[in-house]
Each structure stands twice: as structure tokens, then as C-alpha cells.
Simulated assay, not measured.
Amino acid sequence: MKLFLSGGSGMVGRNILEHPDAGQHTILAPRRAELDLLDENAVHDFLASHKPDIVIHAAGTVGGIQANMAAPVRFLSDNLKMGMNVLLGARRAEIPKLLNIGSSCMYPRAATNPLREETILCGELEPTNEGYALAKITCARLCEYINKEAPSFLYKTIIPCNLYGRYDNFDPQKSHMIPAVVRKISEAVEAKADMVDIWGTGEARREFMYAGDLADFVFAAIARFSDLPQNLNVGLGHDHSILDYYRTIAKVLGFSGKFVHDLSKPQGMNQKLVDITGLEAFGWKATTSLESGIAQTYNFYKNGNTQ
């Protein structure tokens, strides 16, 4: 098939492009200089001209708690504009299939874990990333509305748990938890430091999946697109505490010092674990262990990939 992939230079996009199954398709993944996703007319014209069989919307302005709190306007406006332009551009160009990649940030902060797809919009969002979440929710709802108005247009949303891996962002001002900790502990090892700080108590729990596994699911979904539910969680079905992640990263990187908790820093939701009942029914399962994923992520980082 001919695929249009937005966000091909991001972590998710680049993992999709390097997946073994990518070679079976023609994938159009223009960089920002070639196609500005914030330009509504440019997006529509590109899609109308190239007429892909399916659109995969993986683009986004992303970051961890610190980045979200520092720039909520950008996280809301950029993600909303890009999503609207891609989804409505695809609809106007009569592209029959679209896979929208959402986020577990879409779930209410007080929702019962594991988080079920039907609980979206059933409560207040986590304040530290509310802008990003609102944009993602709007795009998921737009997919539903497009399909409701015209059932032949299969516009569906997958909701991954937290992701990490190759092509992640290791900038401490912008990164998510795992790449930030990989960098922090790597620098501690190099400096022969005996202490690393942890934001919060370390008791908050998170579900992190290796981005290469999400790419694997994307190709499984493409092959059986009609079987895919309207909204589907993609995750592991189990989580770890923040402290557990620190310990695993320390073990992989060879750090033997101690951890000190900075209780003045925010730690977000106490738990964010997605329900994978629908994913299990679909028949797919992630295969990368946490230790293996951390090792691959660290190898990517230490080879100078510190964007």
C-alpha cells in the first residue's frame, strides 16, 4: 500500500520507518521543510495529490511534565492544529483509512486503573499535561464523528501507553521520564557520582512500552484494519513504580549509588495503566522486555544521539 506518515522524523515515526515490514509499502514521510502540518491547505493539497491508501498520524509536539507545564499554549495549539489539518485534509481528499495515534494522557486523572477506552471524557484531566490531552481527545472524537457521518471512512485511534526507545528525546528540558533518567544516570556514571535525584516519592506507577513494539503493532493494525476497534489501547497490561524504573536503568548502566527524592517536584498522576482487554482480543502482544528496551535506548544515547 501507499502510506502517508505524519511525524516521520519523531520517535514513533522513525521506529515505524525502520520496522522490517516498512519495506512492503511505499511510505510518504515528508519532513517539516517539505510539508508544514500547521498549514491546512498544504496538507490537503499534498494528500489530494498523492492519494495514499492510508494515513498514519503520528506527528505531535511532545515532552515530559516540565515541558508541558512550561508551554501549555503550544502543546494545545500545535497538536490540535496538526491533528485537525491531517484528519480533515484526509477526509477532504477522500482517503478511506486513517490511523490516529493518541495518548494515555487522554484519560481522566481520577479514572480507575486499568484505564478503559470508554472512560475518556468522564472526568477532569491531569493538570500537568491538560493542553496536550485536550488536543488528543479532540482528534480522537473527530475520527469518531467522521466515521459516524460517513461509515465508509475508517478513521480510528490507538491509545498507546507511555513510550520510550530509539530516537527518543534526551534533552532534560523536554524529555519524558525514561530518556531523562537514562541521561541523568549515564552522566552520574561518567562523573563517578554517588547520588541521583528522583522527582517526587518514586511511588507513582507508569506503564512504558518500547517504541519499536508500537511500530510492530501499527503494521499489524494496517494488515487487519477492519478488525480494529474505533478506539484501542496499546500497552503492556502491567506497570512499574518510578523507583523501579530508576533501579532498572541503574542496573543496565552500572550505577551503584543511591537515590535522593526531591519532593518539591511534581510527579503527575499516581498511576496510568491502560486496559488491554481489547488489544488481547485483537491478538497482539508486545515482546520487548524492559531490560532489553533500556539497553537499546542507552546504546542509542551513548552513540551521540542526544537530540
Rank of each mutant, 00 (worst) to 15 (best):
K136Y: 04
Y155D: 04
A135S: 14
L142R: 13
R116H: 09
L121R: 13
A110W: 01
R109P: 03
G131D: 07
P127K: 13
S104D: 05
N129R: 11
C122V: 02
P127T: 10
S104E: 11
E126K: 02
I120P: 03
R116T: 14
T119S: 15
S152E: 13
E149A: 09
T112R: 14
A133N: 01
A111D: 01
F153M: 12
I120M: 11
C122N: 14
E144P: 02
C122Q: 15
F153A: 00
Y107W: 07
Y145S: 12
K136I: 05
I120L: 05
A150Q: 09
C143V: 12
G123T: 10
I146K: 06
P108W: 02
G123L: 00
L154S: 15
G123P: 06
P108S: 09
L134G: 04
T128W: 01
T128F: 12
Y132E: 08
Y132R: 05
L142N: 10
E124L: 11
A140C: 11
P151E: 07
C105A: 09
A110V: 03
L142W: 13
Y132F: 14
I120H: 04
G123C: 07
N113Q: 13
E117V: 15
K148S: 12
E130F: 07
E117C: 05
R116P: 03
Y132I: 01
R116I: 13
L134S: 13
S152I: 11
R109L: 11
I137L: 02
G123N: 08
C139Y: 02
A140R: 08
A133Y: 00
I101T: 01
E117R: 08
T157W: 03
P151A: 15
